[in-house]
Design a protein around this nucleic acid. Sequence first.
RNA 1: GGCGAGGUAGCUCAGUUGGUUAGAGCGCGAGAUUCAUAACCUCGAGGUCACGGGUUCAAAUCCCGUCCUCGCUACCA
Length: 688
Amino acid sequence: MKNYKRYTITSALPYANGPLHVGHIAGAYLPADIFVRYLKLKEKDVVFICGSDENGAAITIQAKKEGRSPQEIVDTYHTINKKAFVDLGIDFDIFHRTSSELHHETASDYFLKLYEKGVFEEKTSKQYYDEEYEQFLADRYIKGECPNCANPDAYGDQCEKCGRSLSPLDLINPLSTLSEKPPVLRETKHWYLPLQQHEKWLREWLETGKIDGVEQHDPAEWKKNVLGQCLSWLNDGLHERSVTRDLSWGVNVPLEGAEGKVLYVWLDAPIGYISATKQWAADNAKDWKLYWQDEESKLLHFIGKDNIVFHCIIFPAILKTHGDYILPANVPANEFMNLEGNKISTSRNYAVWVHEFIDDFPDKIDVLRYMLCANMPETKDSEFTWDDFLAKNNNELVAILGNLVNRVAVLTHKYFDGVLNGESNRVDWGKIDLEFGKDGFASKVENSLEQYRFREALNEVMNVARAANKYLTDEEPWKRIKVNEEETADILMACAQIIANITILIRPFMPFTSEKMIEIMNLDSDILKWSNVGSNSIVKNGHRINKAELLFEKMDETMIEEQKAKLVTDNLEVDAATNTVPEISFDEFQKMDIRIGTIKEAEKVEKADKLLKLKVDLGTEVRTIVSGIAMHFNIDDLPGQQVSVLTNLAPRKIRGVLSQGMILMAEHGDTLDFIVPKNGISDGSKVS
RNA sequence: GGCGAGGUAGCUCAGUUGGUUAGAGCGCGAGAUUCAUAACCUCGAGGUCACGGGUUCAAAUCCCGUCCUCGCUACCA
């Protein structure tokens, strides 16, 4: 394994249009924080980088929706998220933001450098522009008459009536759906990164860890899921990607005639890592280039699996194209964390939000860290349950670690007035089921951490506490005190040494607990060095400890009932606020012919997961209707099911099957249900 | 549909290049103990390793097929 001089560690930049939930933390932030804290205990030169990703269309859309400015949106969430990280003890060296001037400058310079190297392909095209809204229109924001079937309401990408795929320029009499006015054609120029030119070296780099035969990293250290996903992309073939967009909110394209254009996410967000490092370096009298451009620096990106392609293919391509930058040595991406059996959903407010957790359990931050680490989605999706939160607190933290510290502190005060009178060199260390020294438990935890196996590492730490509990029970100092005071003192000294070890070992995982242990054991924070782990002489003979204090409080069911309930009720508030469909006239409603029918046959549409081909009896005729409900129902259950059908919807070919109408469904979150007459009514009856 | 990752004890997960009775934590049962937040400690019961074939002296581990979960993608709103 290569020996690096310094480390540059990043966690995915959270997008500043919403708060953070526990899934984010378990995925990209906690593992990085643990790893960084571990490296810092090893006295490594490391910088831990993060910040808010504040540019892009989603921010402007959200701003419009909330009637606020984009700046207000990003300010709000940048502040919330920054505080959440601080409260959680996720200890970035800098939490920067991509709306900063330094970032704009950095991203802009980066673009220019690539531009000057001539790596971009420049393409000019004519696109529709809405003069009132002062923006170019995406295809689906343009309506017009279909040149093929004369449908007056065809969209810029496709005609819904004849199913023909279109380009906006094909439309007759186009209208902007934003202003409802005719858009004008304007020339717009964009720059593209020809990713396909990078396929060859990317494949070599990912598969062998080498570039032009020179070793960069060991691919065996990369996670299977990460490599698999990347190679899958390479096998599909890479395509050029546009690196600019017509948009007002972001980093302006630094070229003449590029007004109203900003850098697209590829050349914006990841550059945020670099600009953040620059700011940190400026604040701390460091040289940022060492962390990004020196071969002896190890660059690691901690992310969730949704970000793999971005960090393993596109960003490396951008870094290498520039020429001066190092590439990531590893991208230890995690999978997703589910919540009580369901996917976490931001839009449905189905999540445990970090800022709310902090309000509800301000003294249980480390319990959360412990729990998220023990359930970290390292190799597959994992599960957050409140019952498990309770169990981990009571059965592991209270029972094993808290109990150990408490019994040692209590015994020491009871028998020796809080003074550790024992002598480490008199202890029979062989009686403890622990191997001291560099190759013992220290290396177990270390090896797990170096492989990004955080749950295993944490369990190894707890094993140290387990061994100490066993030692205490075996040696029975509460009996020994009656016959041999010296031996009793030695036993407690041995336990104190183990606790001192745990104070260091647990620190990356639970920094607040480690701090409490320092206080209870009255330790000097100078001992907090990884090189001390494995030592049995951290605590000096005659050391006085403080009064016992509980590290963790036992919790009961009532403390989590509210949390469980909140998930259910919050989930029911779905979409209530988003009912913003414009009002229509009665005449418009009357245009719709909705009738009751009964499904006679149902079969899957070939090569489509979601589609069913249904034969529906409408009383006077049987129609074929294609409906995207395959994921929600069992085919065999459908025949006989009554449904409501919009019968005069223009027929449309879907996956080669002509669909004559639309089944109406009630939708709630991920659940779909048919709209049917309560008491049954004959097929063909009209709904009005 | 294509591709990727998974499917191992009640729960959450380990199982390296195929090799003796498949492991850990928690939960559960029993015992022992009382310094400790009824915590700790010991012992134990739980697994046809998704399913069906195949290769091999030997397969959770390799090959083929099927089913299920998650992600990307296509198609779909």
